[in-house]
Amino acid sequence: MRMTLAAALLAVLAAEAAAQTGAPAPALRYAVLGDTIAASLTGQPGDAARGAALMGERSRSLCALCHAGPFAAPHFAGDIGPSLDGVGARLSAAQIRLRVVDMRALNPNSPMPSFHQVPDAPRVAAAWRDRPVLTAAEVEDIVAYLSSLGG
């Protein structure tokens, strides 16, 4: 068991998307360490301003459907998840990154979608098949923005 946990600690998670569709296969690679992903998914820092704009786009990022915060008018924000006001003071960038990439790795029953995973549930609509909700660059922009909240 200890070996298993140690392996998981350092595991590089790599997903290859289906090659059958001929669509560009998003290769999702990152290392999970405890409850964090320490390294930027792109190798570059994200852009906080772009992250703020994306989080305001409710139908693309979906965040405001569940979270309140400075990115959404209060009456447009849902209340399924905690408010993200000041989240940068509670969580490190590395913790935020794993939560956005794959909350369900921490809580398999979380309603929060795994934003940077190749979808593996039944009946994924054709337009979304084999692609994650957010690209690596989009995740990094959001991580940069959320880290700037409440510091």
Binding site: T4, A8, L13, A15, Q20, V118, D120
Partner: peptide, 20 residues
């Protein structure tokens, strides 16, 4: 529909869940 080839990842992810 044929599923994306995710097996190895899933194994690792399942372990990460156990860890979490």
């Amino acid at each position: 529909r044929p599923r994306p080839r995710l097996r190895w990842t899933e194994v690792v992810r399942a372990r990460a869940v156990v860890l979490a």
